[in-house]
């Protein structure tokens, strides 16, 4: 049986039917030494206040749904041991997103941005099935694998100062997930995506604060994707000025 320590949880509450502005509730939780932040929230929900709303699913840093601000920092709560926090832990919803209820934020804006960067393989002409699969070497896979590990947890959007200032900014995760296809040897849609990266809410809005990569729980390094996308957008733009067919594949 592991040691139990009482910790105080100051949690943001917001009920759109009753509250004009968010408020806080404080709960005392007997925490076991091996608990993650999410375990304490589950204790609150199960034992103290069943109305507390928050998202979670896998409990193993895969689904990306349990992102919240813990003591002000965007955190994947199922991956963050309570032992690294003090006696009082503050849990608030992720910044830079509208709040639906308590700790649950609205993700529609991100979903639209993600769709806009076309995160799928684009081919000028699809191969016929009889021609077999699109083969890819381990080296070619390595080119983009890191950027494909994003779990859409939205910590990077909560941490990004540019997203806070310019809500139109495509943002770290969507750029990383779009740029991942630019690096995919099977893809032929880089020019199309680069035009989107250069458009409204462009990659060039990024001021390279690097906060996205700092908070990323999967070490995707979205800041690297954004800066590579800047360069590739520039090269593509310059090529479109001098090459026939606007430099398209």
């Amino acid at each position: 049986m592991s040691d139990v320590q009482i910790k105080k949880f100051v949690v943001t509450r917001f009920d759109p039917d009753k509250d004009e502005v968010p408020r806080t509730d404080t709960f005392e939780v007997p925490c076991q030494s091996d608990w993650m932040v999410l375990d304490a929230l589950n204790f609150i929900k199960d034992q103290l206040d069943g109305s507390l709303s928050y998202r979670w699913s896998c409990r193993m840093a895969v689904c990306g749904s349990c992102g919240m601000n813990v003591d002000g920092a965007p955190t994947l709560t199922c991956k963050s041991p309570l032992s690294s926090y003090g006696d009082t832990v503050e849990v608030t919803p992720l910044s830079n997103f509208p709040v639906i209820r308590d700790l649950v934020v609205e993700l529609d804006g991100f979903m639209e941005k993600l769709k806009a960067v076309k995160p799928w393989i684009i081919r000028a002409k699809e191969k016929a099935v009889e021609e077999g699969p699109y083969r890819q070497s381990p080296e070619e896979l390595e080119d983009f694998k890191q950027f494909s590990l994003c779990i859409n947890c939205m910590l990077c959007y909560a941490a990004c100062p540019v997203v806070g200032n310019e809500p139109d900014f495509i943002g770290p995760a969507a750029i990383a997930l779009g740029y991942r296809y630019n690096l995919d040897s099977r893809d032929e849609g880089a020019s199309e995506r680069n035009a989107i990266f250069r458009g409204e809410g462009s990659v060039y809005s990024c001021s390279f604060a690097n906060e996205c990569s700092e908070v990323c729980p999967e070490n995707v390094d979205p800041a690297a994707a954004i800066n590579q996308a800047k360069l590739s957008g520039l090269v593509d733009w310059a090529a479109s000025l001098v090459l026939p067919r606007g430099g398209k594949d």
Binding site: R198, E200, S202, Y204, L234
Partner: peptide, 10 residues
């Protein structure tokens, strides 16, 4: 500004 952003960034 959006159109010229790549050059400005460069």
């Amino acid at each position: 500004l959006i159109v010229l952003e790549p050059v400005i960034w460069f």
